[in-house]
Structures are given as C-alpha cells and as structure tokens.
C-alpha cells in the first residue's frame, strides 16, 4: 500500500484547492494520518473509497477527540461550568476554515500544538484489497461555535452511529448526516460529557482511591475537606 506521504501527494495533485497535511505519529505504532480541510473532506473521502489503487471501502472506526487549549489540557479539570455548544444549523454550509495555525505542511501530533478544537478521526481499511489503515482527521474551528464538520456517512454508512455518538458526547455537528440525534444520552440532555472540561453532576460520595486526579476532583466537589490528604 502507498505510504501516507504518497497518498497526500496524490490527493494534492487531484484536488489542487484542498489542504492535506501529514500528521506524524511519534509513537512506536508510527501510523501517520492525513489532516483534511473540511471543505473538501467529502470529495476526498469519495476519492479514497473509489480509487482503484486504494479502494478504502471499509470505515472501521470513527473517534471524537477533544483538544482544549494547551494550558487547560495539562492541568486537571477545574470545577468550571460545562461549556455548552450552541446548536448550529446542520444544513449550514459544510466547511469551517481550518485555523490559521494549521496551515503548515507537516505537523507533529496534536498534543504538541496549541489545541482548542475538536477532532474526528476515521480509520479506513480496504476489505477488497485487504490493506490499511489510512487514517484521516478532521478538525473544527474551535470548541464553541465553529463545530460543524461534513458528515462522511453518505460515503461510509459505517460512520452513521459513530458520528451520532460524537455529536452526542463531543458536540461536533456533522452537516449532511441523515439522522443527527443523540445516540447514548437522552434527548433532553444538554452537555457533551466526553469533553475534557465536563463536570459530572456531583452526586457520588467521596471514597479513597489511589488516583491523584480523582482526589483533586473530590476536593473541588467538597469544599470542606481541608484535612483531606489522601
């Protein structure tokens, strides 16, 4: 199978207006991924699916990832008010422009940049040619109001429930999804609980655990725990 660099070069030749970047993975797995811009994502996905050399007919896994701004990313979440996303009209134009900082040609893993976006990661394989994975990523403009990404469900039906799950738990609005409703939580629920700054409704008793950040959270929940040393 082609390397991600070759796929990127082919995509750039095929879609001159598109922005395709290589996101390197410094880990041992070294599965590098391609960051697509939202405006061309649907066309590129169709191309990847139907290109005779790739034939990525199988979208295995769709993941949402939250990358808050770097300074909040390193410290444990404080007792902040959960950020609520204003609902964006799903029929609005797909394609929020990528942030200006994201326009380099090759970038390192998202943990090293400044963050402040939500990400959808698609793992693509080919059942016909039995190769893979090709990993593509899409990023929103920010975490509050520019959270629309194009849905890839029309390309791969496998993304149907998984995009709904990401909409539910992360609040990414997938424009063009045929049935974008909450998947796991109830419809009246308003938060996006998989975001890093989500604070669960405080209704469980404190109990000792060896995990430091659970302690930290417990301290936040119980203001009268000066003596709590763990």
């Amino acid at each position: 199978m082609e390397t991600p660099e070759q796929i990127r070069d082919r995509l750039l030749a095929r879609f001159p207006a598109a922005k395709v970047e290589l996101v390197t993975n410094p880990g041992t797995a070294a599965e590098h991924s391609l960051l697509l811009d939202a405006a061309h994502a649907r066309d590129i996905a169709l191309f990847l699916r139907d290109d005779p050399a790739l034939r990525l007919d199988y979208c295995s896994n769709v993941t949402g990832v939250d990358w808050p701004e770097k300074k909040t990313a390193v410290s444990a979440p404080k007792t902040a008010v959960p950020t609520l996303v204003e609902r964006v009209d799903p029929n609005a134009l797909p394609g929020t422009p990528a942030p200006a900082s994201a326009l380099g040609s090759t970038r390192s893993t998202p943990a090293n940049d400044s963050g402040n976006y939500l990400e959808a990661v698609y793992h693509l394989y080919s059942m016909a040619l039995k190769h893979g994975p090709v990993i593509i990523r899409l990023r929103t403009g920010n975490r509050t109001d520019r959270v629309t990404l194009p849905s890839l469900t029309p390309v791969w039906r496998a993304a149907d429930f998984q995009e709904r799950e990401i909409f539910d738990l992360y609040g990414i609005v997938f424009a063009g999804h045929p049935d974008l409703r909450r998947l796991l939580m109830w419809d009246e629920f308003q938060d996006h609980p998989m975001r890093r700054d989500y604070v669960a409704p405080d209704d469980f008793e404190w109990e000792p655990t060896p995990h430091g950040d659970v302690h930290e959270r417990a301290k936040g929940h119980y203001p009268t725990t000066e003596g709590l040393k763990g």
Binding site: G27, T28, A29, S60, T109
Partner: peptide
Amino acid sequence: RPKAGEAYGR
C-alpha cells in the same frame, strides 16, 4: 507511561 503517540489495535 507510554510515550506520546497513538495506536489502533484490533
């Protein structure tokens, strides 16, 4: 503590 990176195992 694995070093920074990502992996998909199936």
